[in-house]
Nucleic acid binder design. Structure first.
Length: 274
DNA sequence: AATATTTCCAACCGCTCAATA
DNA sequence: GTATTGAGCGGTTGGAAATAT
């Protein structure tokens, strides 16, 4: 038993939208706001599926959309977020105001992917395509986010401790991404955090992906973040307030379970991160 | 100038998940 | 607890535009 179709396909238009259809949709949403997409087409006098209306509005007609080429800074953010989140286009879009998930997905597939490959970087793993590509390795390292960089020297260490996932990794004091490793392309699933571990005051982040320092470096007790660093870290995870939804906080990526709240979610009153 | 090929992106499709009856 | 519904997501496709031959 599958889902029933979202609309009566026999009586709906498909394909490119006409100016008149666009105008109807814009007028309706201006007058009534975004609401029930299923009933919107009929109410707006459109022979379109509700899903199609939603897509058209979100990806093309919304007034806050940023048009034009992606900046170098946006490129960099997309690459960094992709190395952290993978193909979670909506989450990435949540951190690029005015850009849509569809736009970013298309841009990734047509530009960034190619750019990374031509630099010798695997766009899925963000690691060099071959181990001898030193220039590529350097390029990957440059996509690392280092939250420790801007921290005051004498800041007390607290809040966040990066912990190694794989204890059998070799010791290494550098803080670069794990770009030169030959490990599997996908990080292993992270075990859920215990409730006390997941509290906002003592977050134990088990990160195992290239965006952050190598496993071998953050296994050390010396790899701890100061309060300023942890603030920078959570600021990075936090999308603009205007677009923040339950699903957008990244704490679930870090092992938080349903019903737990990280400090981001608490600050937005979101008590049930996905 | 005509045709073939490639690139790009808007739109669609099928699926999952959360909410609700 | 289960079924249904609607919203939203990511992968894929179709076709227009750009470029090459």
């Amino acid at each position: 038993m599958g889902r029933s179709p979202c609309c009566e396909k026999a009586h709906t238009n498909k394909g490119a939208w006409t100016k008149e259809e666009d105008q109807r949709l814009i007028s309706y949403i201006r007058a009534h706001g975004e609401g029930c997409w299923r009933s919107l087409p009929k109410a707006a006098g459109l022979l379109r599926c509700g899903k199609s209306c939603r897509l058209r509005w979100i990806n093309y007609l919304r007034p806050d959309l940023k048009r034009g080429n992606f900046s170098d800074e946006e490129d960099e953010i997309i690459i960094k977020l992709h190395s952290l989140l993978g193909n979670k286009w909506s989450l990435i879009a949540g951190r690029l105001p005015g850009r849509t998930d569809n736009e970013i997905k298309n841009y990734w597939n047509t530009h960034i992917k190619r750019k990374l490959i031509s630099s010798g970087i695997d766009p899925q793993t963000h690691r060099p395509l071959n181990s001898t590509a030193t220039a590529a390795a350097a390029a990957v390292s440059s996509t690392c986010l280092d939250f420790r960089k801007s921290a005051p020297v004498n800041e007390p260490v607290e809040n966040i401790v990066y912990k190694s996932v794989a204890d059998n990794s070799s010791s290494n004091d550098d803080t670069k991404c794990n770009s030169s490793t030959t490990e599997e392309s996908q990080p292993p699933p992270r075990p859920p955090l215990k409730e006390e571990e997941a509290s906002a005051d003592a977050v134990d982040l088990e990160l195992s992906i290239g965006l952050f320092p190598s496993r071998s470096s953050y296994r050390s007790d010396s790899f701890k973040l100061s309060s300023a660093e942890s603030k920078a870290f959570f600021d990075f995870l936090r999308p603009p307030a205007a677009v923040m939804t339950k699903a957008m906080c990244l704490c679930w990526q870090l092992g938080f379970q349903k019903g737990q709240s990280c400090s981001n979610c608490q600050s937005y009153g979101l008590d049930r991160p996905r």
